[in-house]
Design a protein around this nucleic acid. Structure first.
Lengths: 364, 364
DNA sequence: CTGAAAGCGCTTACAG
DNA sequence: CTGAAAGCGCTTACAG
């Protein structure tokens, strides 16, 4: 059996008794086609199952109707949420998505990756790699010399000259710190993410800022560096307890680290939620079922991904039309949300109201 | 500032004082070019930063050097692992990846999605959507009439006529059941995934098979249907205890459900790991830090994704060459692995050896 | 070893 | 309202 090759526009034209241009017009919904001619063409398209070759279209139009996405991991909660948001919005806006994963946040393959995407004539690029090392400066430099627009998503505040959709990581730290202070905590410790990540540094700094303002003895040495893993949270908690046996709150860099803290606290016989408040970041689905259920700061990651695509699409359209008036990149900083559960409530979790005992506080 | 448009092959040719064909030959590493000519061309390519327009190349060659991937979710652990494996292997084999996410496992957008990928002349398609409803039969039908090869990954056993890389879900159920029986359990219950998923049915059936063989009163009514969520695990456990107060083992459909079971058991005052064994599926990173640490059955999902791409690439190459000799699709069924932790060890978890107390048993 | 010609499947002005 | 021509940037035979 011969490989069924695709129907071509020329074939459709012949079958409909018109020229290729007319088929092209019908396909692109140009108004200047006689109704009956258009109908005839549409019928043939229907019968033959014709669909335009997007490679050819892209070649002539000079744009591919595809966006390139460069993401870090995907196996992790944050990136997977962001990419989900990106894909959804891209699909909704009629773009297909070419995804490249970098396996090291400090990748030096950036050139090759961007180059490969450019070779495919993507109409724009979403850079969804965390803010580690010199990443951001590098991509900003690339963006300047590239012929396609680039939008950065995730990470921290905007890089000058490049539109960035990010989460307010300082605020994440502040929210968490304010919350445990409001609950009466006075000896606040932390497990951060890897400090090569700007995200991790900002979360910590936001917390320290609040502690300092509250006149709390903000002991930076009680904020230990983790690596986002539960294991690192567990290790850190043991260290924290050694340094400060009467610690009454631990702010974790993410929910996995918080889980490790809960685990370690349990092993050490701490009565979490009565004597110790633990707060995570992310609100992964599991966190509501940790023991005790975890208080955490949620980030609008999928929304950030979607917004990034939205902004990118706007840039693409703008570039298509009037090239000129200095493109003012629109950056946005999205606010996180506190989700309060038993791990910080100062109440025993066993026998609790169970179920819908969830409270959301926006910027408490 | 004018949008910097890409250097073209014609420009490279002129700068190097040769014809386009010669540049093309150098680019494709054809041997029939004089060394010094090739050097000259390479130098110009270097200087200009020329990179071929892959849309044009795809149009002439009739293939895009891209594969299309259709995946379910990505925000979930399983799919994210599979896609990670797919991307890694695709990148390694020189393919770029066009990713489309379906947000409903029983999607009826399949036609449109496949059509869109075909329009982009992808060289092959990886179908990474779970085996729900009539999914598999549908994609098998599509594969037959498509001009590009399709490989299915995930799910259960092979669909006739279409290469499938899957995990042995029956074996997952068997492994889990054998393990708790070996630990002395006699009243075994379960929380399944949604039973519209073939994966969920097979895991349950594998367990029931082992229980029956062991002469255990395999009570199917103790296997309740969940929806993969921790909440459903929690709800199910309450129901299970009502039906069978002296239950001594619960086999969950995944780690999230298992977490819900642990949570509910804790609330109800069950002494997990002493009086109750709980086993999950997936080995999500968090599971090692649940309270108690979770025994679970791990699936080689990333490997499955990589193998799918590998198989797809083989099919693409074969199709490119001798079209003819009935393409015998190669399907593979990958074996899961048991990871034993405290939740099934019949030992208290507090004050345990902590850390590397992990044991892997292959097909116990 | 190298180049002129034709063509991949579309779209974009340009005529009529 | 419709079609002939040219061109997007490559590659593939075909000559020499």
């Amino acid at each position: 059996m011969p490989v069924p090759s695709r129907t071509t526009m020329k074939e459709v034209a012949r079958a409909a008794g018109v020229s290729m241009q007319t088929v092209s017009r019908v396909l692109n919904e140009r108004p200047d086609v006689a109704p009956e001619t258009a109908d005839r063409v549409r019928r043939v398209i229907e019968e033959t199952g014709y669909a335009p070759n997007l490679l050819a279209r892209g070649l002539t139009r000079g744009r591919s109707q595809a966006i390139g996405v460069v993401a870090y991991g995907i196996a992790y909660y944050g990136p997977s949420q962001i990419v989900t948001g990106i894909e959804r919005e891209a699909a909704a806006m009629g773009y297909s998505m070419s995804l490249t994963l970098v396996h090291d946040a400090e990748t030096r393959d950036g050139d090759a990756i961007i180059g490969a995407l450019a070779s495919r004539l993507v109409d724009g690029i979403v850079w969804a790699v965390p803010d580690v090392g010199a990443n951001r400066d590098w991509i900003a430099g690339q963006a300047a010399r590239l012929s396609v627009p680039v939008v950065v998503v995730g990470g921290t505040s905007a890089t000058p000259g490049i539109p960035t959709i990010s989460i307010d990581n300082l605020e994440i730290g502040r929210i968490a710190a304010r919350h445990v202070l409001a609950g009466g905590a006075r000896r606040v410790a932390g497990v951060t993410g890897p400090l090569s990540w700007e995200e991790a540094r900002e979360r910590r700094d936001g917390a320290l800022e609040v502690l300092a303002e509250a006149g709390i003895d903000a002991d930076e040495s009680l904020f230990l560096e983790g690596d986002w893993s539960a294991q690192s949270g567990e290790n850190a908690f043991h260290e924290i307890v050694e340094r400060c046996p009467d610690v009454d709150a631990v702010l974790a860099g993410n929910d996995q680290e918080a889980l490790g803290v809960l685990h370690a606290a349990h092993k050490l016989g701490f009565d979490v939620s009565r004597r110790l408040a633990v707060v995570g970041v992310d609100n992964i689905p599991e966190s509501a079922h940790f023991l005790p259920a975890l208080t955490t700061v949620e980030q609008p990651l999928a929304a950030a991904g979607a917004l990034a695509v939205h902004e990118l699409a706007a840039l693409i359209d703008r570039r298509g039309k009037a090239r000129g008036p200095v493109e003012m990149p629109t950056s946005r900083l999205l606010a996180p949300t506190l989700v309060v559960r038993d791990s910080s409530r100062g109440a025993p979790d066993a026998g609790a109201v169970g179920g819908a005992d969830l409270l959301r506080l926006d910027r408490v």
